[in-house]
């Protein structure tokens, strides 16, 4: 089939994303479709995002981890779990989230630096995050003992729906974000 219309191009992108197991590099798709500019490619993606399905959609376009992929549309989570007989969805513990936050903002960072910032030994959470492939070894710090340095992975970006690390809010934005919301207490009732 010729890729002569924008509709066909959008359908082709969908076909590629359907087959691809990993997010697809948008540059590669642009080059293949011979898009004149980023604007044309964006129109193709918009067309793909706007597909109508009588109010119900199977998948949506996801831009995360520097690539494009198809993910299930919001709202199917419970039924999918039921269909595939998946009982639990594992979430990260608060300790792991804190550790991940430090790695995300301070990378590359050593275990000692993580433990110091958290105020508690963090070997457990680091191991857990390594196993989940959310962080990776990123060389060794040139200080006595040559401690291992940790950095986040693309898996991290995908798991948190981030295009790249720059999409993490800056510390100023974070403060504003939490001033707007009434800060929910993390701690038990006072």
């Amino acid at each position: 089939m010729d890729l002569d219309t924008i509709e066909r191009k959008a359908a082709f992108v969908e076909a590629v994303l359907f087959v691809a197991k990993e997010p697809v590099d948008p540059q590669r798709l642009m080059a293949y479709l011979r898009c004149a500019d980023a604007g044309e490619f964006e129109r193709i993606l918009n067309l793909l995002e706007e597909r109508e399905g009588g109010g119900a959609r199977a998948t949506v376009l996801k831009r995360a981890g520097g690539g494009l992929s198809l993910v299930t549309a919001p709202g199917w989570h419970e039924q999918l779990k039921d269909f595939f007989s998946i009982r639990t969805t594992s979430r990260l513990s608060l300790a792991s989230l804190e550790t991940l936050a430090i790695v995300a903002y301070r990378q590359p960072v050593t275990l000692a630096e993580i433990s110091d910032l958290r105020g508690v030994n963090s070997a457990g959470p680091v191991k857990n995050l390594l196993q989940k492939k959310l962080i990776r070894l990123a060389g060794r710090k040139k200080v006595p003992g040559l401690p291992a340095l940790y950095a986040t992975t693309r898996e991290f970006l995908l798991a948190f729906g981030l295009g790249d690390l720059a999409e993490l809010p800056s510390l100023e934005e974070l403060t504003e974000l939490f001033e707007e919301k009434e800060q929910p207490s993390l701690f038990h009732q006072e």
Binding site: E98, L100, A101, Y105, F160, T175
Partner: peptide, 12 residues
């Protein structure tokens, strides 16, 4: 750090 963790938790 706790704020970032909560944000990540919401994103997750």
């Amino acid at each position: 750090l706790q704020k970032i963790s909560r944000l990540l938790q919401e994103m997750e």
